[in-house]
Design a protein around this nucleic acid. Structure first.
Lengths: 335, 335
DNA sequence: GGCGTCTCTGTTAACGCTAACAAAAATTGG
DNA sequence: CCAATTTTTGTTAGCGTTAACAGAGACGCC
């Protein structure tokens, strides 16, 4: 079994002070004589002392850990968000504990949250992009700092989201501005808020232009489903512009169009969403909408920290505006 | 400040037993009367009691948390690995704490490991795909269970890796089998072990076939660098087969070839590595090599757990064989 | 110079749990 | 039915830290 490192009392003995003074030095307490502080610092260095987070967590009631609950951290969006969250948390001196769940149903989420709570995390970030997650959150203990990301806009929980509606509107408008008569939409799964928001934005842009939205093509985020939708779109001569709910769907659509000999952007323009790093190297380079995951991470962490510090659980809300990235997959329609 | 939940003594009082009996029930100790066990269970449920992991960690010396150190969890490989690790750990009752680092240099890694150690994690998994990481690991305390993934094969540390060499050999051989006279290689960054292994495998396959490896095209995993290499390859009429160190590089190459009017696979065949979910929807669908991240995660966790349980820190080694996924980007060369 | 007021340091008591031992209850055997 | 054993339960003492309070000097003010 592992040899346990030195404890605070060992440092205290070496520095010739009480353990409490060591504690004060460690926590940056003001009333410590400079000379003492240095002696303690030296003793800490000499022994290679490392404070015991578990003991601290026990006595203070919370650890310097933030729990994150997420579903599929392989997808580009969640993965980026998670990475950004870790970075930001690390800068604030917090570790991030990930509770991955297979499904975002009530049971799974609750279980993940329970696991975090039993470790006395300082706060929890739930990446809750689907309806079923929302229900679980309402049943949670009210006294733990909590922020949801990409969650249900209609629930009274602190929430940070990318402004899906604005992004989708911008994408659609960009196609309309290029001269297209209407824009088709390949969506994500209907139980994701991201999907719903993007559908909304697309509809809004069309309606604002006095257009009747064409039928929705429902996909599931995957290139495979984009491909299937693309096969249908390719066969419809009236289609000249497509907005897909993410870049992978766009990839599938591009491939289907290519197979059917429909040239992009000459015959059909395509706009995606997410700006995955590869989007610039699709054939052709994909015009897309870039959500700022760093900004989302910063906003959610800040929101969480303010809850942790104040103890209040105010239901704030913050949205981050995405930006359109224009590339070569959009052109005016051929007359 | 948050209202603290009930403690073990509260459960004990409600069940009419001592707190130690509650502890025994919780830890599945055998000598507890069935009737008592049920009473305690009921009390736990009634109070919504949740054991305090920090207290347990304090007294036992380790928490049910595994620390993971990783660099860029946005890349497909690391992200998949991390997700698989979480899943596997959760099944074993462990939480995963992620210590993301910006650079894999000595300082960053040590700092991340320190953070984990101060939380008294039960063990650490370091995803250490580059040379500089290896050095840091040798300086680490020897008494903490540690496993490296994709690390330096030449260091005496427990290691789990994908068999890069075999994968690259299979990819290269696949192209040779199709009738190509030689195979070009777009590699990853030279300080990654993954890169080195894939270059090795490529060389081995060519040498075994009595061929002289053509000059290496060095990339950096990104589609952008693949694109740059592809531009050069496209201009060289003798090139008929390219093996890229990952699928994103392949995407860049495909795009460059397409721009230069070089048809894939008619004129040039391409094989990637990773089998990202989108690879089947590249133009054309990409033949690639699929590493089994789940297997890697399982192997590393198992290795870690055996160290945790036994207390011994034996330097084991395990490799996971990848499989070739044949798609349409490979064809015999035109004579 | 005595006394209140700082500043610095030490002492003691939790936090919630498990380990080790002690005691009580149940079971067995003769 | 009593002693020896086994099973079940309770008691006590930490784990390493912070919080709350107490004590010891140093300093200024009347």
């Amino acid at each position: 079994m592992a040899v346990h490192g030195p404890a605070m009392t060992d440092v205290a003995r070496l520095a010739g002070v009480s353990h409490q003074t060591v504690s004060r030095v460690l926590n940056g307490h003001p009333n410590v004589r400079e000379q003492t502080r240095l002696r303690v610092r030296a003793a800490i260095a000499e022994l290679g002392y490392r404070p015991n987070g578990a003991a601290r967590a026990l006595v203070t009631g919370r650890s310097q850990v933030i729990g994150v609950v997420a579903q599929n951290t392989t997808l580009y969006g969640p993965a980026s968000l998670l990475a950004a969250l870790e970075q930001t948390a690390a800068e604030e001196g917090f570790a991030v504990s990930v509770g991955s769940v297979r499904n975002l149903d009530h049971r799974s989420i609750s279980a993940a949250v329970e696991r975090h709570l039993s470790h006395r995390v300082a706060g929890i970030v739930v990446i809750a992009p689907v309806e079923s997650a929302g229900e679980a959150l309402e049943r949670l203990p009210k006294d733990v700092p909590l922020v949801t990301v990409d969650g249900d806009p209609s629930r009274p929980v602190p929430l940070v989201t990318v402004d899906q509606v604005a992004g989708a509107r911008a994408a659609t408008q960009h196609l309309l501005d290029a001269g297209h008569r209407t824009v088709w939409h390949v969506s994500g799964p209907s139980d994701w808020f991201d999907s719903v928001g993007r559908i909304d934005g697309w509809r809004q842009a069309l309606l604002a232009a006095g257009l009747d939205p064409p039928p929705l093509m429902p996909g599931d985020w995957s290139a495979a489903s984009g491909y299937r939708c693309g096969q249908m779109l390719a066969r419809m001569p009236e289609v000249t512009a497509v907005f897909t709910a993410n870049d992978h769907l766009a990839l599938g659509v591009l491939r289907a169009l290519h197979e059917f000999g429909r040239r992009v952007p000459d015959e059909i323009s395509v706009v995606g969403f997410d700006d995955v790093p590869e989007a610039a190297y699709f054939i052709p380079p994909l015009t897309t909408v870039r959500p700022d995951f760093d900004a989302v991470a910063r906003a959610s962490l800040q929101m969480l920290l303010s809850q942790i510090e104040s103890g209040t659980g105010g239901a704030l809300r913050q949205t981050v505006a995405p930006t359109l990235v224009a590339r070569e997959s959009v052109a005016p329609p051929r007359r």
